[in-house]
Amino acid sequence: MAQFRVAAPRALDEVFSLLPTYGADAALVAGGTDVLIHIRAGKSSPKLLVLLSKVRDLDSTIQVTGSGVLFGALTRLSDVASHPVIRDRYAALADAAGQIGSEQIRNRGTLCGNIGNASPAADTMPPLYIYDAVVNVVGPNGRRAVPIQSFVTAPGKTSLAQGELIESIFCPCPEDGAGSAYIKLARRNGIDIATVGAAAMILGTGKVRVALGAVGPTPVRALDAEDQLGKGLDDADAFERGIDMVAAATKPITDIRASRDYRLAMVKALTREAIRVSLERRLTTGRVLP
């Protein structure tokens, strides 16, 4: 394995003073479940790993407020998956977080790390797209908020400038009566990367939101199809036209996991299923008010 050093700073100021010295040769580690594996596989060779887990200014909790939920930089995926308010109001995100890797991975891996890693197949991304999440970024020159849809710019690339990091992710509260779901297709249930992932949300007003993962260089919010799908909730022909529009919004490739054609077919099947489960949840789940 490549040689690197590890620093375990206790404060954000220390992080910001360390990073410029190493520039692109420094890597931030939250849970480390991707960083360490990439190093071992020779996909990256940073000279310095900066552990974030001991930084006292970074948070590992889920804060529920009147306007939404705030996930800290160090909030673990297993806590996202099991939190009662997330399971109820942000069910698609709980679905996604609970299907990443294995329990061991979810206990170490963080939500912010899953976003910062910027994999096109990141499971938590489609749910964050439908909830209109905001990524709160902090750097030596201050803080800024980035809408999730402009955060990831290409596979493995984000709008983070060098020296910046994700301090938290905010999800505004969906309106009462909304239901959502994330459906993951992978070759097996445990420890696999999504071949296709689909998130949907049905709002109380009958509006539909849909976002897809692993079918383009970045996650895709199928904005153009959403009106049509909303009209199609009680018109089967209109609904199928909406499903076709979702597929048209994606740009899947052929790789070791699946062919382009198979992915296009699965985009349609998974979107239908995500909408079906969202509708079911809209009607049946008891609401837990924050």
Partner: peptide, 11 residues
């Protein structure tokens, strides 16, 4: 639970 093969000892 954690996979100790991908957890830095420093953690």
């Amino acid at each position: 639970t954690a996979n100790s093969c991908i957890v830095l000892a420093a953690e």
